[in-house]
Design a protein around this nucleic acid. Sequence first.
DNA 1: ACTGAGAAGTCAAACGTTTGCGTTGGTTTA
DNA 2: TAAACCAACGCAAACGTTTGACTTCTCAGT
Lengths: 343, 343
Amino acid sequence: MTNKPATIKEIAKKLGVSTSTVSRGLHDHPSIGLTTRMRIKKVAEELNYTPNQTAIFLQKGKTFTIGVILPELSEAFFSAAISGIEDTANKKNYHVLMAQSHDNAEKEKHLVEKMKSHRVDGLIVSVSKETSSFDHFTNLRKHNIPVVFFDRIPSLDNVHYVACNMETGTIEAVTYLLKKGHRAIAMINGPSTLLASNERKEGYIKAHTKNRLKYDPSLIASCNLTEEGTIKAMDELLANKRKPTAIVAFNDYVSLYAIRYARRLNLTINKDIEFVSYANLPLINFMDHVPTASVEQHPYLQGQKATDILLDLLNNPDNAQQAFYKVIIESQLIENNKTIGSI
Amino acid sequence: MTNKPATIKEIAKKLGVSTSTVSRGLHDHPSIGLTTRMRIKKVAEELNYTPNQTAIFLQKGKTFTIGVILPELSEAFFSAAISGIEDTANKKNYHVLMAQSHDNAEKEKHLVEKMKSHRVDGLIVSVSKETSSFDHFTNLRKHNIPVVFFDRIPSLDNVHYVACNMETGTIEAVTYLLKKGHRAIAMINGPSTLLASNERKEGYIKAHTKNRLKYDPSLIASCNLTEEGTIKAMDELLANKRKPTAIVAFNDYVSLYAIRYARRLNLTINKDIEFVSYANLPLINFMDHVPTASVEQHPYLQGQKATDILLDLLNNPDNAQQAFYKVIIESQLIENNKTIGSI
DNA sequence: ACTGAGAAGTCAAACGTTTGCGTTGGTTTA
DNA sequence: TAAACCAACGCAAACGTTTGACTTCTCAGT
């Protein structure tokens, strides 16, 4: 008997009223008398009634669900981001349908289809590394499904996005090192295909010119973000005529690879060479030899903002087609306060 | 025109057939002629038809969606687990509706309600630390919503779960230390309310008796898993008449807190005192002073298994009420191969 | 030429809600 | 006292699919 969930019909029958009355009663519609309203709610309680959302979805043509497609949940950055998404979505009674592309363009395409057929109200996406065509996203506009991108933004005009400006953080980082007296500051950058790499480079250059120092291109090395790539880049930089005394690394991992390698070369961290990096991973707190500072990219905040934007788009559909949200979160240099220090 | 998604009705009208024909045609029902079937599919393609899942849900009384409630996504363990859940669910064309309890019992209750009204077909749960009453879960049985727990299992009979057996891993860990010559092996355990704590304790004891050593209760300290708690436990253990030369810590974090504290006390890691721990977090690879081994709990695998079980339960509803899946994954000691070592 | 059997479709109900529009009675207004 | 009004509720359509039951047509078998 408690087998199938109770419906509005049953509670209507039990009270000898119509289903419409029950529906309105449950929603406190003014045209339903107070007494019947109470009786309805009482029976609903007794029968343990919970509205069947799928029916409501069908009827309203909305699902109150937002789809999230991101590359890889196990990356700390993304799990923090989805945490932000989830929290703010839930606050507004929206649900989150999540899926990972595993950085596979084909899979990403499929996921978009799935989300579409699931009739998500909107989509939040951080695109896969390998995605080169964005048709599956632009097509969504025809279906009136707004999309908000975060962090990994497609090179498209007319999209909503929130991203972190790496330039300012980089300027901070380089300036921080300059103030500490470093003059030969190198950078291990990421692949030049990434927007984020360019921002870093720009920041690096601007920080130098701002401080009336000339920018030395040979102090910037690119790498593919793997450990081997990092080592290559290190070799390249250390072989330079101007041997760097500080290095800005693309992210905390690259930085840790580099530090590990530097120590293998018997360089003393923070004496022979100092590191600054990006991401500000929590693991930093447990380590002895770490970058002295790290540029925080606020993944949780990015998730929050992206959700805010999407929800706004959903509630004011007119906004979606004309103006485009381009929210830039300023990255921020954070010094690592090492409780132990390098003993 | 491409505004609202195309429906089965429109394609029926366009072809001058009935909606049922279209529906059947799209599903390759034998009673629809090959030619019309083709025409149907062609028009569907043209109109860019994607079935409205919410309508299907309503009609079938199933949502092909599984709900996942877990404490905290930002914990590496859980993000790995949900990765496993998501991947296997997607493989079978199920969707994942995710939510975090943030270790808050009240919130967890709410989430269950939400999942219910969303008519998820089933639930995968890792219970919050603070949950003491499990009614909101047991009630689900009345609604025929199967639940599979993983990792954090409620102390209930008649539930499906997959968990990692900490006992074997602990035995391995202690034996590992014994073989290395340690005789005073301590343990920093978690709260005794956790099943996982008991398993660790059992393993600890069994490892000793197996090796014909007597078990010394004063070498086991409990802590609340915070840094302060860990320090307290360390103080307690180090003050013992038999000063431990090795410590098995509840998880990698506790272990890192303990190591940090030990170093502050000028103890040399791996000489004065050695650590072994649980979780096998990736960050271990980057650190100098780490537990020499760690018990892997296979979060991804747990997620996979839990999903497999749930899907089986969904497709064979009779299974759900009688037999209860109790899948135990053996934990496994993994030595940390430090590429640097403690210089 | 008649029956029976597929083949190929159609009809309509059902899933659980919501909502515009009607329908009641009863009370106020002029 | 009739016209007007309002509170309180019922009717039925609609959302997009699926599916059991029914219809029509064609053709083979006798």
